[in-house]
């Protein structure tokens, strides 16, 4: 088990380095500069700014500095939010994004598995067909459409919840963003659970259990559920990645002060260090989630522990 974790950690290092490398060099070869404004700066100011941010050094030196900084948890200064370092911005944004993302992941998993189970109780029955059609629709609904529609219905028309904003994390502000983020992932989880269960139910050990007179809920919960959840667990990694991407849109729609907002602002303003920092962090989070999913998988399925 420990060996598995260690091996997976080692394997994730090249991926992370590739992300850092790619984002660094892409950003540096970009045309335009964060100091480009309405009027061109005079050359002296320009040189002084470049020197202050180390942009006058050879690119290899800049990359070396950046990597060294990263290893110390320093993402460099933000070029647009002048009084903040990228690390400051990440620390203010991360808790918001993590709260939203973690709630959405939990809800999606719990809801999706429950719906998948409900559908399997009577395979191909009317409930099953309707639920699965509904889930297919959910997975096809992009968050940037469901988000505004939820806000329109529950905030503007019904007036139950605030339209947008964070309100220091008061629960009423969290409901709509989390809901919008949950729906597509929940659909995918439900479909996977349903497919996994359907496949397991045809296997010998299930028939053996049925032969011993076990049926209904007990059969599913004690004999079928654990192996059927394996594909769901391995989906947790990609799901987390999808939630992070979805969070970028959701934070923009609901004006939440999360990482995704800084990312979009950084991308629109050419704030290189900010964009690089957030991409690196996202990559690290995705790698981490894949790792957790793999470890869970190994715990559920002894065959892959090795």
């Amino acid at each position: 088990m420990f060996g598995l974790i260690l091996r997976r950690l080692m394997a994730s290092i090249p991926t992370l380095l590739a992300v850092v490398f790619l984002s660094f060099f892409l950003m540096r070869f970009a045309p335009g500069s964060p100091f480009d404004g309405e009027r061109p700066l005079d050359p002296e100011t320009r040189l002084a700014l470049d020197a202050a941010y180390g942009l006058d050094q050879p690119i290899i030196v800049q990359f070396g500095r950046y990597i060294t900084g990263l290893a110390h948890g320093d993402f460099g200064p933000s070029l647009v939010y002048r009084d903040f370092t990228v690390t400051d911005l990440i620390w203010t944004g991360l808790p918001v994004s993590l709260l939203i993302g973690a709630l959405a992941l939990l809800l999606a998993m719990a809801g999706g598995i429950a719906i998948g189970l409900a559908a399997t109780l009577r395979p191909n029955g009317p409930l099953d067909c309707r639920l699965m059609l509904g889930m297919t629709l959910l997975t096809a609904l992009p968050t940037f459409v469901t988000g505004p529609i939820l806000a329109l219905v529950f905030a503007l028309w019904l007036g139950w919840l605030p339209v947008a904003g964070w309100g220091n994390g008061a629960p009423v502000y969290v409901v709509l963003p989390v809901l919008a983020l949950t729906l597509p992932t929940m659909g995918a989880v439900a479909k996977l659970t349903r497919a996994g269960l359907a496949q397991i139910m045809t296997q010998d050990h299930i028939r053996a259990a049925q032969g011993r007179g076990i049926s209904g809920w007990r059969l599913i919960s004690r004999h079928a559920l654990r192996p059927a959840l394996l594909p769901v667990i391995s989906y947790a990694g990609p799901a987390a990645a999808g939630l992070l991407t979805g969070a970028v849109v959701i934070e923009t729609i609901f004006a939440l002060p999360g990482l995704g907002r800084y990312f979009v602002q950084g991308a629109l303003n050419r704030d290189y260090p900010l964009v690089m920092g957030v991409v690196t962090l996202y990559a690290a989070l995705i790698v981490l989630f894949n790792l957790i999913a793999d470890v869970l998988y190994g715990w559920l399925d002894p065959r892959v522990r090795g």
């Binding site: 790619l22 970028v248 991308a267």
Partner: peptide, 14 residues
């Protein structure tokens, strides 16, 4: 394993 949406955004920015 790359966060591919972010790579696309990066390409757009660059």
């Amino acid at each position: 394993a790359l966060p591919f949406m972010f790579v696309v955004i990066l390409l757009m920015v660059v």
